[in-house]
C-alpha cells in the first residue's frame, strides 16, 4: 500500500559493504515507508542477500560507506540484537539448527527481548504459551515443533514456517525476508506467503529478497527493485517483476554493461 505521506521506516543511502576484501554492495539507496511491500530481485551474486545481512548486522560484512536510518536513527551503529529489539527482522534463507536449545524457550526469550524493546512487560511462561499457540495458526504449524530444538531436523519448509512464526511473534516494523521462497513446494509457499500477507499492515513494511516471480504471484509488491553488481539498477511496480520473468536477466546485463562499460561482476 503506497501512501506518500506514510512515515519513512528505512532509509538506505549509498550503502557500500564488503565481505573480507571483496566489495559486494557498491552504493545501494532505497527508501521504505510504512505500509509498503518491496521486492528486491536479482541474480545470485547480485548483492541482494548481502543487503539483508548488512541490515541485520552480520559480523562477516563490513560497511565501508553510506548510511542506513531506521525510523530516523542510525541503524548501523547498533548491535544485531538491538536492531531486532527495535523491530527489524531478518527471515533467513538458511535458518541454522541449534541443537539443545528448545524452540519454545528460544521463541519466548526472543519475544520478550522484542517486548522489552517496545517497553512492554515480559510474558511469563503461561502467557507466552497462549500467544505462541495462537500465532502457530498463522503458519499452520504443529505445536510439536515447539518441543524440539531450534530448527533441528526440520525440513526446509518447516524451517521457513518457523521463521514466519518468529516474525508473527516479534511483530517487526521492517521485515526483511531473504529468499523465503527457496526450497518450498507450492503448498508450503502458499502457507508462508499467507503468513507474510497476514502480518503485513499499514504500520509495518516488508522487504522481500527473491530470485523468482513465483513468490510475487502470492505476495503483491508495491515496488520491485532489480539489483545487479551491488547496485539497484531499476525500480518499478509489480509489472517489472513480470518483465523479468518474461525476458530473463539478460537485459539486465546489457543495461549494466551500458552504464558501466564493464562486464557485470558476479560475486
Amino acid at each position: 500500500m503506497i501512501r506518500p505521506d506514510a512515515p519513512v521506516l528505512l532509509e538506505i543511502r549509498d550503502l557500500t559493504a564488503r565481505v573480507e576484501d571483496q566489495p559486494i554492495l557498491k552504493g545501494v539507496s532505497l527508501t521504505i515507508r510504512a505500509g509498503e511491500i518491496h521486492a528486491v530481485m536479482g541474480r545470485n551474486g547480485s548483492g541482494k542477500s548481502t543487503l539483508s545481512k548488512v541490515l541485520a548486522g552480520h559480523p562477516a560484512y563490513t560497511v565501508t560507506g553510506g548510511t542506513v536510518l531506521y525510523k530516523g536513527e542510525d541503524l548501523l551503529s547498533l548491535e544485531p540484537e538491538l536492531r531486532a529489539r527495535a523491530g527489524l527482522f531478518l527471515g533467513f534463507q538458511y535458518p541454522v539448527e541449534i541443537p539443545g536449545v528448545s524452540n519454545l524457550e528460544f521463541l519466548r526469550v526472543a519475544t520478550n527481548a522484542r517486548r522489552a524493546g517496545k517497553g512492554e512487560e515480559e510474558l511469563d511462561t503461561f502467557a507466552f504459551e497462549d500467544l505462541v499457540r495462537e500465532r502457530l495458526q498463522v503458519v499452520q504449524m504443529d505445536p510439536a515443533f515447539l518441543e524440539r530444538s531450534v530448527n533441528e531436523g526440520f525440513s526446509g519448509g518447516e524451517k521457513k514456517r518457523n521463521e514466519i512464526l518468529q516474525m508473527a511473534l516479534l511483530e517487526p516494523l521492517v521485515a526483511v525476508l531473504d529468499e523465503t521462497d527457496s526450497g518450498l513446494d507450492i503448498d508450503a509457499l502458499r502457507i508462508v506467503a499467507g503468513g507474510v500477507n497476514h502480518l503485513a499492515g499499514p504500520d509495518n513494511a516488508t522487504l522481500l529478497i527473491t530470485h523468482y516471480q513465483r513468490l510475487l504471484d502470492v505476495i503483491t509488491p508495491d515496488y520491485v527493485h532489480v539489483m545487479a553488481a551491488g547496485r539497484i539498477l531499476r525500480t518499478g511496480g509489480k509489472e517489472l517483476a513480470l518483465e523479468l520473468e518474461e525476458r530473463g536477466y539478460d537485459w539486465v546485463d546489457a543495461e549494466l554493461a551500458a552504464t558501466e562499460r564493464t562486464p557485470a561482476e558476479v560475486g
Binding site: 541485520a56 548486522g57 552480520h58 559480523p59 548491535e79 544485531p80 540484537e81 536492531r83 531486532a84 529489539r85 527482522f89 531478518l90 533467513f92 535458518p95 541454522v96 541449534i98 541443537p99 539443545g100 536449545v101 528448545s102 524457550e105 528460544f106 526469550v109 526472543a110 527481548a113 522484542r114 524493546g117 530444538s149 518468529q166 516479534l170
Partner: peptide
C-alpha cells in the same frame, strides 16, 4: 548460530549461554 540468536534480539552472552546450557 550466534548471529541467528542475536538477530532475534538475544544478546551475545545470552546466546552463548543458551547454547552451552542446552548442551
Amino acid at each position: 548460530q550466534l548471529f541467528y540468536l542475536q538477530s532475534r534480539g538475544i544478546a551475545f552472552e545470552e546466546a552463548v549461554s543458551m547454547m552451552v546450557s542446552g548442551f
